[in-house]
Simulated assay, not measured.
Amino acid sequence: MADPTLEEIATELYAGPPEDFVSGRNARAKDAGDAALAAQIRSLRKPSVAAWVVNVFAQERAGQLDQALQLAAELREAQEDLDAAALAKLGRERRMLTRRLAETAAELAGSRGERVTPATLEAVEQSISAAFFDPDAAAAVASGRLIRALEPSGSSTDVRDAVAGGVPTLGAPPERPADELKARREKREAERRVHSAEKDLVAAERDLAKRDKALRRIQEKAEELAATEAELDAQLTKVRTEMKQVQRDIPDAEKERTRAAEQAAAATSEVADARRALEEF
Results as ranks from 00 to 15, higher is better:
Pro251Gln: 06
Pro18Gly: 09
Val124Lys: 03
Ala264Val: 04
Ser143Ala: 13
Lys213Val: 14
Glu60Trp: 15
Thr11Phe: 02
Gly171Ala: 15
Glu7Ile: 05
Ala266Ile: 11
Leu225Ile: 01
Ala50Asn: 01
Thr117Cys: 08
Leu6Ala: 08
Val54Pro: 00
Ala162Gln: 07
Asp161Met: 14
Ala234Met: 12
Ile250Leu: 13
Ala172Pro: 01
Ala204Glu: 12
Ala36Ser: 08
Gly63Trp: 15
Trp52Ile: 00
Arg185Val: 06
Val271Cys: 01
Asp83His: 01
Val141Phe: 02
Arg160Glu: 15
Leu65Trp: 14
Gly110Glu: 12
Ile128Tyr: 10
Thr104Arg: 11
Arg257Trp: 08
Ala72Ser: 12
Lys210Asn: 01
Leu150Pro: 03
Ala261Pro: 00
Glu7His: 00
Asp136Trp: 00
Lys244Arg: 10
Pro18Met: 13
Asp20Asn: 08
Arg145Asp: 07
Gly63Asp: 15
Leu108Gly: 02
Pro152Glu: 14
Ala197Gln: 11
Phe21Leu: 06
Ala10Asp: 13
Val49Thr: 04
Lys221Ile: 01
Lys199Ile: 07
Lys182Arg: 06
Ser111Tyr: 13
Arg94Ala: 15
Arg259Cys: 00
Glu220His: 09
Val194Phe: 04
Ile147Thr: 09
Ile147Asp: 08
Ala119Val: 05
Pro118Phe: 13
Arg160Ser: 14
Ala2Met: 13
Val56Asp: 01
Val202Ser: 09
Arg145Glu: 10
Ala234Tyr: 00
Ala32Thr: 04
Val53Met: 04
Thr120Glu: 14
Glu93Leu: 11
Gln59Ile: 13
Pro4Ile: 12
Ala265Val: 03
Arg61His: 12
Val116Lys: 08
Gly113Trp: 12
Ala131Trp: 02
Arg192Met: 02
Lys255Glu: 03
Glu224Trp: 11
Thr258Trp: 14
Asp207Leu: 10
Ala106Lys: 05
Pro174Asp: 09
Thr11Ala: 14
Glu8Cys: 04
Ala106Gly: 03
Ala266Thr: 09
Lys221Cys: 01
Ala190Pro: 00
Glu114Arg: 10
Ser269Ile: 04
Asp252Arg: 14
Gly24Cys: 02
Ala109Asn: 03
Leu75Lys: 14
Glu77Ala: 05
Arg92Met: 15
Pro4Gly: 12
Gly113Asp: 06
Ala209Ile: 04
Leu101Arg: 08
Glu107Trp: 10
